[in-house]
């Protein structure tokens, strides 16, 4: 019988994230802290670039601000409401953003060529 408490070990957590980042279309994955905006984890091709540190920080900042304003918009329409998912399509990629009260998960991935 495995424990019924915290259900995932560190390894399983890592492998969960690895699953996503190893998907073919996925370029990179960032996890941010909601309150401070600091980067908890990041991986993927953006991170592997030479200027990765600053670039990731920049991206994180932009995403963070975007989430914040989206949240304001949702809150402004109905304060009972909550932001659950953001998908941002651009010509080049798509960002899938999962906001949470404490964290933000961001995945950059290529869109199927349309």
């Amino acid at each position: 019988m495995s424990s019924l408490g915290p259900s995932l070990t560190e390894d399983e957590l890592t492998s969960l994230l690895a699953r996503i980042s190893q998907k073919q279309s996925v370029q990179s994955l960032i996890i941010l802290d909601r309150s401070s905006g600091s980067i908890i984890r990041s991986s993927g091709s953006i991170a592997a670039n030479r200027n990765s540190e600053s670039l990731i920080g920049e991206y994180a900042g932009m995403v963070w601000k975007f989430v914040k304003s989206a949240e304001e918009m949702v809150g402004g329409m109905d304060d009972e409401d909550d932001l659950k998912l953001l998908r941002v399509r651009t010509k080049r990629h798509e960002l899938v953003i999962v906001p949470d009260p404490r964290f933000i998960l961001v995945v950059f991935h290529d869109t199927p060529t349309a």
């Binding site: 259900s7 995932l8 996503i20 279309s25 899938v96 949470d100 404490r102 964290f103 998960l105 991935h109």
Partner: peptide
């Protein structure tokens, strides 16, 4: 290590995979 984080990853990774 926090439970919140584990919980969040568990939920959000499902959402992302479905989305992808």
């Amino acid at each position: 290590a926090s439970e919140d984080f584990v919980d969040f990853i568990e939920r959000s990774s499902k959402v992302v995979e479905r989305a992808l």
